[in-house]
């Protein structure tokens, strides 16, 4: 699954004139990029209805325009520590083929960047570091380094 996704991403980069847009989010001091094609919506933090007996990174469900959407804490999902919500905290709602709509709590949503293929350095698959598996490449802009997240992999490890 994961490999397939990587291939499609690579294809996309070539197909779309070598350029793909990413939403840049922050978790702590690190910046992560999410392919803009998955983004359904970005909303401010709102009250989340807790669901009992689910893994700790599933924070519950929210109501977005009449849809009940599960919300995950991206920090916890990626093995980071949970922090208090701040004014900058957002819920990014992604639409994934496999899971439908899913919300992710992130520390901050920064900007949209356009990266061309040559700006992305592929990360070799390394089975040891779990966090590393979520990242399929590192994008370099003039000022920053952005870890590009493969959201299908991030979500796929359900049940942990």
């Amino acid at each position: 699954m994961a490999d397939e996704v990587r291939i499609t991403n690579a294809d996309l980069i070539v197909d779309e004139g070598e350029k793909v847009q990413y939403i840049v989010i922050k978790l702590g001091n690190e910046q992560y990029g999410i392919d803009i094609k998955y983004i359904d919506n970005i909303i401010r933090m709102q009250s989340i209805t807790r669901v009992p007996h689910v893994p700790n990174y599933i924070k519950g469900v929210i109501n977005v325009r009449g849809e009940v959407i599960p919300v995950l804490n991206l920090r916890l999902k990626m093995g980071l520590d949970e922090i208090e919500d701040t004014k900058a905290s957002r819920i990014i709602i992604l639409k994934l083929e496999q899971f439908g709509l899913l919300g992710f709590i992130v520390d901050e949503v920064k900007e949209v960047v356009t990266l061309s293929e040559i700006q992305i350095e592929k990360v070799a698959y390394d089975g040891t570091d779990e966090k590393q598996n979520f990242v399929f490449g590192v994008g370099k802009t003039d000022t920053d380094l952005i870890s590009l997240l493969d959201m299908n992999v991030v979500c796929a490890e359900n049940g942990k």
């Binding site: 009992p52 689910v54 929210i62 109501n63 009940v68």
Partner: peptide
């Protein structure tokens, strides 16, 4: 439905949206 992502919770058969938008 709670969505495909949360399906293991046996106690909870679904969700509903209340008049005030709360779930």
């Amino acid at each position: 439905s709670l969505g495909k992502y949360i399906n293991k919770s046996k106690l909870i058969s679904g969700a509903t949206i209340l008049g005030d938008g709360e779930i």
